[in-house]
Amino acid sequence: MRLAILTDLHANREAVEAVLEHAARQHIDQYALLGDFVGYGADPGWVVDRVRALVDGGAFAVQGNHDAAVVRGPSPQMRPDPRYVVEWTRDRLAPAQIEFLAGLPLQQSHGDLLFVHANAWAPPEWDYIHSRAEAVRSMQATSRRVTFCGHMHEPKLYHLAATGKAGDFTPTPGMAIPLLPHRQWLVIPGSAGQPRDGDPAACYAVYDDAGGELTYWRVPYDTEGAGAKIRAAHLPQRLAARLADGE
């Protein structure tokens, strides 16, 4: 199975369309969608409908913290910009779309693969994986050999040997990486809808379970068009600027 992994789409239609078009040329058999389908961007309804169509076709999908906020309302801890966008999004989604987000699980598994938005040790608490130590904590919380998670908007790959030795590196786009079977792996594809590593190109990854290989991809898209929609919707203007800057 060749699996395309997308996460943190953040209501960015232009980015999602570009990534799905790119993935269609990679002989993909199935999709895994790791949450945060809404928030920040101006096309939440379109993105939710596209995700729902992929799920109807058999895709794996989990709930992210922005999805949960749209379902339940923003938490008091949310910063002002995302809080405003959550409220704006809630007013623009149909009840069936919110119901779809509400019904998403916090994690899914398939064979030796685990799909989760933030981490494996406490999915509903939305803690970030900022370091190797946190990645090890996540890998030790599951018996699955490969964990795919989002939440972090920068591509990263971690691994853990049976001896307890861990490592990490930032992948090169387009280069196949063998995921050696005697290690555990934690895959962070980076954000499709709002990359934050200084590169505005959308992120996603492809995992080939037959060959045991993982490839990260960067896909340029119309950041100006996506930003113009944010400005036209009177959402916080810096959300448009950060798309162009990749920050």
Score class of each variant (00 low, 15 high):
A4M: 07
L9N: 14
A11N: 05
N12C: 13
N12D: 12
N12P: 12
V19R: 11
A23T: 10
A24S: 15
R25T: 15
G35D: 05
G35L: 01
D36F: 08
F37Y: 15
F37L: 08
V38S: 00
G57W: 00
G58D: 14
Q63A: 09
G64Y: 06
V70L: 07
P74D: 03
R79N: 09
P82N: 02
P82F: 01
P82H: 04
P82G: 00
R83I: 03
Y84S: 01
V85L: 01
E87C: 01
W88I: 02
R92A: 04
L93I: 04
A94Y: 09
A96P: 12
A102G: 12
L104D: 05
L106T: 01
D112T: 07
V116C: 00
H117V: 01
A118L: 02
N119M: 01
P124Y: 02
D127F: 14
S131K: 14
R132P: 09
R132E: 15
R132G: 11
S138T: 11
A141V: 03
R144M: 13
F148T: 13
M152N: 15
K156Q: 14
L157Y: 02
Y158V: 01
Y158F: 11
A162F: 12
G164T: 14
G164A: 15
D168P: 03
P171S: 06
T172I: 09
P173Y: 13
P173M: 09
M175K: 03
M175E: 05
P181D: 12
V187E: 09
P189F: 15
G190M: 11
G193M: 12
G193H: 11
Q194I: 08
P195E: 14
G198F: 12
D199M: 10
D199W: 07
P200T: 06
C203D: 13
C203P: 13
C203N: 15
A205Q: 08
Y207L: 11
G212D: 08
E213I: 02
W217N: 06
P220Y: 07
R231S: 08
H234S: 10
L235N: 01
R238G: 02
R238D: 08
R238L: 02
A241L: 06
D245N: 08
D245I: 08
G246W: 12
G246D: 13
